[in-house]
């Protein structure tokens, strides 16, 4: 209800809201989006699964300190020399040299996050910058960048990675991350480019051009905030594919041998010949890969709804 002061109503609620929103514009927008996001059943499921894996990843830092034998890579239970099933000391059992499978699973979660997020991040940054420049500049530069993107997009990334690693020996995990990023930017840059094309002729861009703003300023100050949400959306999908590529690579024996990962666990269970008699070894990493990629996929879908109000149901107050 408005309060009347000297015959002029001042909507107190509106004013305080205005004041509150002053400095926290981005926070406010985030909270608004977050609300829609978390109300979405897909988003909620995704967040819950993700949370579980995050706890697992964090736990991987703690576990080796409880007992050195729980170190996922070098911790060996002195009493065990073959793969054993779940027990009280080893919740998921051990592998064929007596390393704890649960510790490896936790470590795998950490690695999956690192690989997924960092390669997705690199590919998004690369894709976004190239997309914005390509869309904004147009002409020859646009053609050149987009043809390059086309070429990379049709290259089979897994096969390329296999060939490279058989040429140069086994890669360090960061090189794998980097290569995945290089292989995965083109799709992002196409989307960002088309978004940039539609933004380029919007009057607010032209207004800052009339004010004398440089091209770089227009790209990073005016266009970037407008394409950023879309980039984040694509990032979630990139995470999924990066995790899958890394897992496949490790399983095929081209992963980083000094690093435990879910794909590596699957490689070991296969190589040690326990594939068919150690379900406690085979299933957890397999299920984890599926669940984590599912979580990121759900997150992306829910984010899609936040970004595109048309997908939202009307009247859901």
């Amino acid at each position: 209800m408005p309060i009347w002061i000297r015959g002029l109503p001042i909507d107190v609620r509106g004013r305080t809201k205005g004041v509150f929103m002053l400095k926290n514009h981005y926070v406010q927008r985030f909270l608004q989006s977050w609300k829609i996001f978390i109300e979405n059943p897909l988003g909620k499921t995704g967040v819950i699964i993700l949370f579980v894996f995050m706890v697992m990843a964090l736990a991987s830092f703690v576990v080796p300190h409880i007992n050195p034998m729980y170190d996922p890579m070098i911790g060996i239970d002195p009493n065990i020399s073959i793969s054993t099933g779940p027990s009280l000391t080893h919740w998921l059992g051990t592998d064929n040299v007596g390393r704890d499978l649960f510790a490896q699973l936790l470590e795998g979660a950490k690695v999956a996050f690192i690989v997924g997020l960092s390669s997705a991040f690199f590919s998004i940054v690369l894709g976004m910058v190239i997309g914005m420049i390509s869309g904004y500049a147009g002409g020859t530069l646009d053609t050149f960048l987009m043809r390059t993107a086309d070429i990379i997009m049709v290259l089979p990334s897994l096969v390329i990675l296999l060939i490279l690693s058989s040429l140069f020996g086994q890669f360090n995990i960061w090189i794998i991350v980097f290569i995945i990023a290089i292989m995965r930017w083109p799709a992002v840059s196409r989307v960002i480019r088309s978004q940039t094309l539609s933004l380029k002729h919007r009057p607010f861009i032209e207004a800052s051009k009339v004010a004398g703003a440089s091209h770089l300023r227009i790209i990073f100050r005016h266009i970037m905030p407008n394409v950023l949400p879309l980039a984040f959306l694509y990032m979630t999908f990139r995470v999924t594919s990066a995790i899958l590529v890394e897992a496949a690579l490790s399983f095929l024996g081209f992963g980083d041998p000094s690093q435990v990962s879910w794909g590596m666990m699957l490689q070991w269970v296969w190589k040690s010949g326990n594939m068919f008699h150690a379900p406690y070894w085979l299933l957890p990493p397999g299920i984890s890969i599926s669940l984590l990629t599912l979580a990121f996929y759900l997150l992306g879908r829910a984010m899609d709804e936040v970004l595109d109000p048309r997908l939202r149901k009307e009247g859901r107050a």
Binding site: H25, R202, P203, F204, A207, S208, H222, P225, N226
Partner: peptide, 8 residues
Amino acid sequence: QSLNPHLS
């Protein structure tokens, strides 16, 4: 259309 929604 003429004001950037992300700028105050």
